[in-house]
Design a protein around this nucleic acid. Sequence first.
DNA 1: TTATTTCTACTGGTTTTTAGGTATTTTTAA
DNA 2: TTAAAAATACCTAAAAACCAGTAGAAATAA
Lengths: 211, 211
Amino acid sequence: MQKDKLLTAIVDDHPIVIEGLKNLLKNESDIAIVGGFQTGAAILAYLETNQVDLILLDITLPDINGMELCLEIKKKFRSVIVLILSNRTERSIVLQTIQNGASGYLLKNSSLDELRLCITEAVKGSICYSKEVTEILSRPSRNELLAAPRLTKREKQILKLIAQGKTSQTIGEELFLSPLTIDTHRKNLLQKFQVKNVAELIMSANQQHLF
Amino acid sequence: MQKDKLLTAIVDDHPIVIEGLKNLLKNESDIAIVGGFQTGAAILAYLETNQVDLILLDITLPDINGMELCLEIKKKFRSVIVLILSNRTERSIVLQTIQNGASGYLLKNSSLDELRLCITEAVKGSICYSKEVTEILSRPSRNELLAAPRLTKREKQILKLIAQGKTSQTIGEELFLSPLTIDTHRKNLLQKFQVKNVAELIMSANQQHLF
DNA sequence: TTATTTCTACTGGTTTTTAGGTATTTTTAA
DNA sequence: TTAAAAATACCTAAAAACCAGTAGAAATAA
């Protein structure tokens, strides 16, 4: 591979962040910023017709979740390196993005040095986390230890209704089901989340970003 | 007042954002950036010995909540104008900062034009929101409509234990109180939040950022 | 000091949830 | 087409939560 510059795209819904990154990276000899994009749609469209080597990707985007966008990019354009640059500190999110093909995860408050390091590591093919992210990964909090349980469609639906304070009776009437059926789903939800009662259930669901 | 430049400080835990803002504002003829600060403590220390006219303040900071920091700044240095520049879109947060003396609230994805406008408005003494924030304020969601209820110390304590899935019995034992007393607090919590049961209670408390 | 709020605790009764199952039908994926 | 998963529904019984009150003690604010 020649010593061409890395064609780098920045995807972030905040123009201020894009500006900041451009500024921080403009003096890097081996990086060429090809553009800043505020939406997932914009970067996907750009990728269709342009060469990009590296994408600095935020998690919070207006049109699509950064985790899903990462997956989509890696599916369609396998060779593109994706580095996540986000504020989100949830362990589950970090793990998911890596599973979706990201080559690293940095918090936005990481230093330029860390960013540079991660870029070179990512180009080499390894995965690189910023210091704080490493900490997050190594100290799993009690609630995040459990992976977010895989819920069925019905379960998600009923979970939402429970969160609205509805009783099994009411939910049954609403969905034209026996309240006993709702009770079963309730039971299964408690089991899947490994909790004792609705209070803990709703708490856990919130922490797992299910609402 | 002379046509001196506005001495402006940026408070944000993300160096990238600070860089971006500096960059965006460096061409403004009437603004002089005196510094970027990553913590509440840092800006408070700086204010002790330096003149600052305007602070661009983030909500999410490592050491102190931006809302509280705003209040503190306005208490000690009344004349300083505080403009909130944050990602947080919760109505309750916007309202709280304004109540705490902020002169405006912008989302980080607002344009430079909006930022300029809000700064001039703030200097004039009026309060200015970015377009999206105005929308947030005008369309109050069902849950946020109700102000966060004022909870007593005991109630907060018990709410947290309920959220952990503990029964009145258990909580009573833990706090050396009669379970009947806990039931009373439970009842009062439900009443204060205007909800029917714990599911809704925990949901509401989460939406009100009480955990 | 007095008034108010908070914390405490109770009575008595109803509703709802939770825990332990089992079991049939429907849907989905291999 | 066949196995697995999801959705449906039931039983019994205990535990917990919820409702509507009352009321005294303790702490706090005016």
